[in-house]
Every structure is written in structure tokens, then in C-alpha cells.
Design a protein around this nucleic acid. Structure first.
Lengths: 202, 202
DNA sequence: GATTTGACTTTTGCTTTTAAAAATTCAGAT
DNA sequence: ATCTGAATTTTTAAAAGCAAAAGTCAAATC
């Protein structure tokens, strides 16, 4: 019975994820999710306190997917450069794949619930941690200088993230940037990181 | 007589600049500008086709101020690092000083008039040119590697600009970021550029 | 003829209104 | 403890009205 309950929770999560990924938060209604599952709308509220929490759960889910994916990919990688390229590519792939889910957090930046806000902070910290550990390995191997990695990782991440913001101007129009734009951004991020890493070499 | 006409045009420009710098584009009316000068509103339209053109003229004016200021400051500077720091500081000072004037272009990013759009593109190109010539001098002096400076300058500028966008989230609320935020951004930009430049060294 | 203006017209940017849609609650059924 | 239908509350979005601001122009002034 409790197992069955968990299954239902998961089903809701999956269905919501599909809807959010396709139509975004604003254009997805609780009624639609319920209908997809042939559940009553009220049942959704039995498993999730409100729409926002459901969204947060979905977001957490996909963010974990990215984190695991990156962690897995980095296992076999040796050099700092290679590792950073992997991270950048995975990140970009992720943004492309879940654009409509992520869009809401960008649009709402300011007034997000504490829950969501914390989730984003955690996600950022995780990303920073990954970058940091990549650099850390470089330092240990004598490849990179011994600098304040906490700070450097943050700066590096900010540079990469910002690059995307500069190019993608119209966040309001909820229009997904085209492949060319994404590719151009990724190319710049790679080039920047190549120079950046070189600047950290011993 | 024509000289007097030019003077009036300039007076309008100055008054508009003061208003725009203090209240921003949206909160400044043509009637107010006219009243400040004891001109009739219609006279403003004799010298400028519309409010947008007046704004563009003001923006062009302040942008030129920045460009000249930077060019002047760079005359005496030798090393790449020093030069870049100067550019970053001047840029930030400029943003602080004319925040309410610049705000409009950021808010309206998408639907700006061709005129304004071109002005921003030109300004960006100018900034890129400055960075490029700084790097160029570094290359000539044998300080930096010989790379595609056009591309590198763009990437460098994007990284710096983006950094600000990442930190300043609420462009909508038309709230001026506080000194601490600006300082934090500038500090990161400086650190980033130090590593970046080191990454370009021969 | 180049400037300048007051009076006039058109647009734009708010409220306010309001109807529908969506979120959320809840008493009671399973 | 799970689940639902029906009812309630909140949001959203379109329409209407209105005041302020943008923009025009014929006539006056220099």
C-alpha cells in the first residue's frame, strides 16, 4: 500500500515533467496533469501541497539527472580541459532539453518561493563544486596553480552563465533560442574556458 | 542665427540628459523638458523628430563621453593588465553614473528603434575595438600570443558583460543595484581578466 | 525663410471591470 | 489512509474608460 502510494507520486511527477517540459509551467494546468493520469485533480493535492511544490519536485528531479550525468561522465576523464568541455556540453544539452522547465525560474527570478530559490542555490553550488573538484584535481596533479578554488570556480561559472544571458536577450517572449544561438554560445564558452584554464596553468 | 539654433539644440540635449539621468526615459515627459527651458513643447519637435530621437541623441552623447574618457586614459598606460583594469573601471563608473539612462535600453532590448539598436551595436563594436587594440599592443610587444583578436575581444567582453547580468537579476523592478553589488561585479571582472590575460601570455 | 507657439488630435498607459479559467479546499465516500 | 465531486477562492486575460503624454499643424513672430 505505501509502495503503491509512492508509485502514484512518481507517476504524477513523471506526467508533470512531461507537460512542463513541453508546455512550460504557465501553460500546464493541474487539471491537465490529472486528466493525463485519469486521476482526480484533488488527488494531486493529496500528494503535493500545491502546484509550486510539484514544479519544484520536477525541477529537483531533472537537476539531479544533470548532476548524476556529469558526475558519471567525469569519472573517466583526466585533463582539466577535457573535463570542463564535458561539463559545458552537458550543461548546454540540459538547457536545450529542459528549456521550458527552466524558463519559469528565469522568468520569475525575483519572486520565487523559498523552496525553489533554495533549489536553485543548491544547484548552483553543486555546479560550482563540480568545477572546483575538476580544478582541484588539476592542482593536485601539478597541472594548475594553487589558487583560491572556491572563488575561481564561482568566477568561471559566472562567466559562462553570463555569456548565455548576453546572447539570449528575449527571455520575456518565452521563445526558445535556436540551435545556432546555443551552438554559438557553447563555442564561446569553450574558447573562453580554454584561455581561462591556460591562465591557471603552473 | 544658425549658431543660435545649434545652441538651442544643445540646451535641449543637456536638459533632456539631466532629466533622463535622474528619472529615466519613462518618467520624463517632453512637457517637462520644455518647461525646464521655458520653451514650448512644439519647439522640441522642431529640433528633434520625436522623443526617441532625443533619447538617442542623449545616449550617443554620453556614450561618446565614455569612449573619449577611456581613450584618453589609455594613452599613458603600458601593460595589458593595467589597460584592461582601466577599461573595466571606466565602464563600471559609467554604468553607475548613467544607470537611469541606460536602463531603458536594457528594459527594451528587443523592440528598440533601428536608430537606437544601431547605436548600441556601434557602442559595443567600439568597446570591442578598444579591447582589441589593447590586446594588439600586447601582441606587438611580444607580451601576448598571436591569436584571433577579433574573436578573443568579443569573448572577453561577453564574459565581463555577462557577469553583471548574472548578478543583477531584477532589471524589471527598475531598481538601481547598490554599491556593494557593483563592487563585487567589478572585483570578479578584474579577477577574471587577470586569469584571462595570463592565459593569453606567450 | 527659419523659428516659435498655442491649440488640437492621436496614442499610450494606466486603472477598473468582469468573465472565465485555474488553483485550492473540503466534506464525505471508498 | 486514499480518493473524489462539488464548491470556493485566486489568477489571468480581455475589454472599456480615461487621463496623461506624444505628436501635429496652421498661424504668428523674428
Amino acid at each position: 500500500m505505501p509502495k503503491n502510494a509512492d508509485e502514484k507520486r512518481l507517476k504524477i511527477l513523471e506526467t508533470a515533467k512531461r507537460r512542463f517540459a513541453h508546455y512550460g509551467m504557465a501553460k500546464t494546468t493541474m487539471a491537465e496533469i490529472a486528466k493525463d493520469l485519469s486521476f482526480s485533480k484533488a488527488l494531486l493535492y493529496y500528494y503535493f501541497p500545491d502546484k509550486n511544490s510539484l514544479y519544484a519536485a520536477v525541477l529537483e528531479h531533472v537537476v539531479e539527472e544533470l548532476e548524476e550525468d556529469i558526475a558519471e561522465s567525469l569519472k573517466s576523464v583526466i585533463s582539466v580541459s577535457e573535463a570542463i568541455v564535458i561539463v559545458l556540453e552537458k550543461r548546454m544539452e540540459f538547457v536545450k532539453k529542459y528549456y521550458y522547465i527552466l524558463e519559469y525560474t528565469v522568468l520569475m527570478r525575483k519572486d520565487l518561493s523559498t523552496e525553489l530559490d533554495q533549489l536553485l542555490i543548491d544547484s548552483f553550488e553543486n555546479q560550482k563544486g563540480i568545477i572546483k573538484s575538476v580544478f582541484q584535481r588539476g592542482v593536485e596533479r601539478g597541472e594548475l596553480m594553487d589558487v583560491d578554488l572556491e572563488e575561481i570556480s564561482k568566477i568561471f561559472l559566472f562567466s559562462c552563465m553570463g555569456m548565455r544571458l548576453v546572447v539570449v536577450k528575449d527571455l520575456k517572449s518565452s521563445f526558445i533560442p535556436d540551435k545556432e544561438e546555443f551552438d554559438a554560445i557553447l563555442a564561446m564558452q569553450k574558447k573562453m574556458s580554454a584561455i581561462f584554464i591556460r591562465g591557471l596553468k603552473v
